[in-house]
């Protein structure tokens, strides 16, 4: 077991550190299934999360945010890179290379909340079975399980009498609470939440976001939050990382990212969100064209064909991931010179 520990250069308060993570999916063709190319779903991603904070991964569909979160949980094997996780005994382990026997106890410490509350709960199991399953797997006896499940249900705002009911009796918001209770069953430290509110109605979404914030405070949880809705992300995150075609293009503290974005893509994303305020209409910089194909990304900077600020260097040289201000990372040749509008600029114009 000790051989799995990594000599940590990781700072003491960091729970998870991902370095140069890559995940390629081969494209196979023909009778012999020869590999003819790769979909570069995650292409050199690095980030870290401190204990007790929320980091959000945002980006449009196909940008690799879900693949990144799955690699972190080792639900899929990464192609390259390190995923350092601090265990509860303070030792650091590389999840990317961990063996089955190292992974098994780790799984208790990292859990997942899914997007779709309708398909992520087995319709033939009662709440006791669904929420109690992780406990059963870990050898908790029946009576103890009933007590613990009742306690978990109370924790997520459901009545413990619901124990014997089946998921179909619950609404979308209640089902999402059940999914959260299941994720909390084993007292995890890291929760990966993949679009946990995007399938919910507006009035219910607020309830679930509040619950996630409360639980984080009470149980000292760390969240890796995957989402595409920037208003939700702004609401829940301490720090935000923006992804585009498998790469991280910008990462910063929430207010810094929203108020003074350094990457043209972040700025474009911010202006593309329709605001629930009729005064803020049509002051947007809509990026032209469509998201690049991760199987055949453009040369140089992946965003250059859509970027209003692109110069010759952007077409030929790939920009590097660098820290340009304290805690503000960006991947852009022109990050230091550009003055990009953040959300405050939009509001002022209105």
């Amino acid at each position: 077991m000790e051989s799995n520990s990594v000599k940590g250069q990781m700072a003491d308060d960091v729970l998870l550190e991902v370095n140069n993570l890559k995940k390629f999916f081969p494209i196979r063709k023909g009778f012999l299934k020869k590999t003819v190319g790769n979909v570069r779903a995650v292409d050199d991603v690095s980030f870290f999360i401190k204990e007790g904070e929320t980091l959000s991964l945002v980006g449009e569909s196909g940008c690799g945010k879900t693949t990144t979160s799955r690699c972190v949980l080792r639900a899929i094997d990464p192609t390259e890179g390190e995923i350092l996780f601090r265990r509860d005994d303070r030792t650091v382990v590389d999840v990317a290379k961990a063996s089955r026997s190292t992974l098994k106890p780790l799984r208790r410490q990292m859990q997942m909340i899914f997007q779709d509350p309708f398909s992520s709960l087995n319709p033939r199991m009662t709440l006791l079975d669904i929420v109690g399953e992780p406990l059963k797997v870990n050898g908790v006896g029946r009576q103890e399980r009933v007590d613990r499940v009742a306690e978990l249900l109370r924790l997520v705002g459901l009545r413990p009498e619901f124990l014997r009911r089946y998921p179909h009796a619950f609404s979308g918001g209640q089902r999402q609470r059940i999914g959260i209770a299941r994720a909390l069953a084993l007292n995890p430290r890291l929760i990966v939440a993949d679009e946990p509110v995007s399938a919910l109605d507006v009035s219910v979404q607020a309830q679930i976001l509040n619950l996630l914030l409360e639980l984080q405070e009470d149980l000292k949880l760390t969240y890796l939050f995957v989402a595409h809705d920037l208003s939700v992300v702004k609401h829940i995150s301490d720090r935000v990382a923006v992804m585009y075609v498998g790469q991280m293009v910008e990462m910063a503290e929430t207010d810094a990212l929203f108020n003074s974005p350094k990457h043209p893509y972040t700025s474009a994303l911010l202006s593309a969100i329709p605001q629930p305020d009729p005064r803020i209409r049509a002051q947007r910089v809509i990026p032209l064209g469509e998201v690049a194909n991760p199987a055949n990304p453009p040369s140089g900077c992946y965003f250059h064909p859509r970027c209003p600020y692109a110069q010759d260097i952007c077409k030929t040289d790939a920009p590097i991931w660098e820290q340009i201000e304290s805690g503000h990372y960006v991947r852009c040749h022109r990050a230091r010179e550009l003055e990009l509008p953040g959300i405050m600029a939009l509001e002022e114009k209105a």
Partner: peptide, 10 residues
């Protein structure tokens, strides 16, 4: 009840 990007976080 809708989260706004102009409101303070958390």
């Amino acid at each position: 009840s809708i989260p706004s990007i102009y409101a303070p976080s958390r």
